[in-house]
Amino acid sequence: MSTEAAPGAPSPGMRKGGDAEGGSGTAGLVRLTLRRHRATAWAALGTLVALLVGLVFLRAAIVDHVRTHRLDTRCVADWGCGFSSEAANAFRDAFGDPLHYTGRLIEFLPLVIGLFVAGPMIGREMESGTYKLAWTQSVSPARWLAVRLAVPAVAVLAGLSLLSAAYTWTWRAVPVGTLPEEWWSRSYDMLGVVPVAHALLAVAVGALVGLAVKRTLAAMGGTLVTYSALVWGLQSLRPRLTGTVTELSAEMPGLIKGEGDAWIVERGLIARSGGRIPEPDCGVGVEPARCAEQHGATGWYLDYHPSSHLWTLQWTEAGIAVALAALTAAASVWLIRRTYP
């Protein structure tokens, strides 16, 4: 990280060293970027290691508790197992919060990374004028931007992938029935490839906004709004990323599927014509059967994603997010090429 922590007093005659370096100066740009954000890089590395160690211990404790109290056999399919069992309550008390808040942290890390790229990495350089120093050396502004994109992208690919893998690994040790608030559909943003893809998108958005706005705080604000809007868009698209499973029934289905952790997308009535009436309005205190009668319906339907859809959904969303990130990054390169020679 600190590739060039004060090289003492370089002696005259280091010209040779300069010549020997050769190349295009890209390595120099990488070193400059790391040196400029040395404190942040060390802090990020420290946080990463702390979280990884924490997750390893958390998982060990979870596995131990589950094995001791046989929660893995008792709480697999029965979603309500926790409320009647002292062991499950103890499990919830001990592991619910650590797991939940670690997950939240991972969920918000992409945004934090995007804000960092937009503000301190690019916006501040444009605002303070130091870009004039960097861009008038032997490297072009476009290459400078490419390095500013690549360094955080590599950090994300390495660090966040590791963190997300560790979290997913810990999360898998939790018996389905014990922590309903950590079901896959609710922990979706912290699992697997999605946080990594979101973070890559945040890096690209941060770079583009930072370059366009040229002010530290304004760039961070702009990134917050733009990235949040994009993620909101991805999240609204998410249920449609792969086909849902539809269940038809005469009785109104509950909002909880039998297998417990399914992700209910939509519930409603099926009209006599065969059309769908999603979430019909029946008025307060009306029996489901009367409700169906009111709407002239023949039965109910329930669209849901079973837990087996998790990875299909994840990879599809990650693919879209990475494609968006690539487009945004290309837009920022286009912008810098168009604006500056």
Partner: peptide, 14 residues
């Protein structure tokens, strides 16, 4: 040293 890294082959430290 940043000057040297950004101007490979040109920089004159002396």
């Amino acid at each position: 040293s940043m000057g040297r890294a950004l101007n490979p082959g040109r920089w004159d430290q002396a």
